[in-house]
Simulated scan of single mutants.
Amino acid sequence: MKLFISDCDGVLIDSEILAAQMMVEHLQTFGVHIGLNDYLRTWSGMTFSSIMNALANQHGFELPPDFVEVITQKHEAYAAAHLQPIAGVKEAYAQIALPKAVVSNSWLWQVKHAVEFVQMQEVFGDRMFSSEMVARPKPAPDIYLHVAAHFGLKPHEIVVVEDSKSGAKAAVDAGMHVVGFAGASHILDDHTDQLYKIGVKTVVSSMADLPKAVEDLRAQV
């Protein structure tokens, strides 16, 4: 393996639960009432645009032209008050002896902000990528294939850590080795089983266990 790729939301920062809480509340303004767990089970890891367009089709409501900007502003305000880094992420990544990159469905400026928030600029450098760089966001494999091509690597030379089903599917479909992370606040009881069904190699619930999981995968290939 020649590259370690980290997802951002739910892996570097504990933000997926904040996005879900904000979205559940916001959707009520469109007459859509979804429980928090149902939202997490169905929509976690997808872009705001994908989620809102899908729900608008399902429930028959019209989206205003600026809906993405409105949601993004709400999310940023909520995150500013409540955001926390994933416990132990900086220490865990320091033990993984591979070049590192971040790949996210978030806007690139949000990825950069998250990396700064967890004080890991030196870990990733300019190796930060957003699905805005490709035609389709996760769960499509486009962004992962784009990153592999960018570094001149084959997918099987890359190991990825992902928390969401959407992200895990994207990396698995791209042909990469995937470690599932189930230690963020939004993770539900059946999440680990769901990740294994998608095709992740192993799942860890603590960042302290991630370096060994990556080394174990490297020993197998």
Rank of each mutant, 00 (worst) to 15 (best):
H113L: 10
S106Y: 01
W109F: 10
L98G: 02
V68D: 08
A80D: 12
A79D: 01
Q73P: 14
P85D: 05
A87G: 10
H82L: 11
S106K: 03
A101P: 13
A92C: 09
K112G: 00
Q84C: 13
E91M: 10
A87R: 09
A80T: 13
K112P: 00
S104P: 02
P99M: 03
E69P: 02
I71F: 09
W107D: 11
V89S: 10
Q73Y: 11
L83M: 15
L98M: 04
A81Y: 07
P99V: 05
V115C: 01
A92L: 07
L98P: 03
Q84M: 15
V115E: 01
V102K: 05
E116K: 14
V70S: 07
N105E: 07
K74C: 06
S104C: 01
W107H: 15
E76F: 14
Q110N: 14
Q84A: 15
Q95S: 10
L108Q: 11
V102E: 04
Q73S: 13
H82Q: 12
K90I: 08
G88L: 11
V118K: 00
Y93N: 14
A97H: 14
Q84R: 14
Y78S: 10
A79H: 01
A94N: 13
E91D: 14
V115W: 00
A77I: 09
E116V: 04
Y93T: 14
A81I: 10
A97R: 06
V68Y: 08
E69T: 09
Q73L: 11
L83H: 06
V68F: 08
A79Q: 05
P85I: 03
H82F: 06
E91L: 11
H113Q: 12
T72H: 08
P85M: 07
V70N: 07
Q73V: 14
Y78L: 09
S106N: 12
A79G: 03
E91G: 12
Y93R: 10
I96N: 03
A80H: 13
A101G: 12
A101I: 10
A97W: 07
A94C: 09
A80G: 15
A101H: 06
V111T: 01
S104V: 00
Q73I: 09
Y78I: 09
V102T: 10
K100N: 12
T72V: 05
K90Y: 09
V103Y: 01
T72I: 08
Q110Y: 01
E76Q: 12
V111Y: 00
S106R: 02
A94D: 11
